[in-house]
Amino acid sequence: MKTKYMNPYLAGVLLGLVLLMAFFFSGRGLGASGAVKSVVVAAVDVVAPEHTANSGYYSKYVGEGKSPMKAWLVFEMIGVLVGGFLSGAFSGRLKWKVEHFPGITANRRLIFAGMGGILFGFGSQLGRGCTSGSALTGMASLSVAGFVSMMAIFGTAFALAFFLRKNWI
């Protein structure tokens, strides 16, 4: 079938080269959820600095000489916004829209998107990274955590697909 998107195998090789460059230059892989964590830490630190200083989780990232927003992943994700936008502009895909299966309403799509985001955000912290940071990067560096994350994420999504089929097909 004809598609307006890049050949997936070519895209995979290019994505792999981007990841390899991250390893070669910075000695670390890609990530995504870590950048959102930095935003959450920074926001809570502005609203309630005493709370972040005393909390077991936030305190790792704040304090003297530490700035949660001056993180590798934050700058990388700003790059992702720019790169995604450039690609969308290049291929004529810039458009405000709620994308959803025609069999459901836009509101239903948005409610499920929000719920999915909450779960993914929570799980990414418990699992120490998401699909890019733990699964993809971890697999490339042969880490057990990477393979375990990949199998748990994709395995669960397959296992639950039947129950959510009305949202997608």
């Binding site: 990949m150 199998m151 999504a157």
Partner: peptide
């Protein structure tokens, strides 16, 4: 964590 993320993915 992976199981919770997988649920988040399909939802």
């Amino acid at each position: 964590g992976g199981i919770i993320m997988g649920a988040g993915f399909i939802i």
